[in-house]
């Protein structure tokens, strides 16, 4: 992977873990590796999709727990 791609991953992870310092640092780093704000926003969308997807599939845990105690 290129340095630019690694920085985009780091930016996405920074958003997933919601680290404000990391977001500032990797925003600057992404720009300095040649990414543009649209690409960086796309990376954040990927992070959001993964986080959102993980929340959704945890719904199964809820459904299973509810089923167990329900008639």
């Amino acid at each position: 992977m290129s340095e630019r791609e690694k920085c985009l991953i780091a930016l996405a992870v920074a958003h997933a873990v919601q680290c404000p310092y990391c977001i500032d640092a990797y925003t600057q780093a992404c720009l300095e590796k040649g990414s543009n704000p649209e690409q960086m926003t796309e990376a954040v969308h990927v992070a959001a999709a993964i986080r959102g997807g993980a929340s959704l599939v945890h719904g199964l845990q809820m459904r299973n727990a509810a089923a167990k105690v329900s008639m």
């Binding site: 290129s2 340095e3 630019r4 600057q28 720009l31 300095e32 590796k33 040649g34």
Partner: peptide, 17 residues
């Protein structure tokens, strides 16, 4: 040259992009 207050990317990588 960068469109803002940051350093330019590595030249060879930006050339490829």
């Amino acid at each position: 040259n960068p469109v803002g207050a940051f350093l330019p990317p590595p030249e060879h990588a930006l050339e490829a992009d």
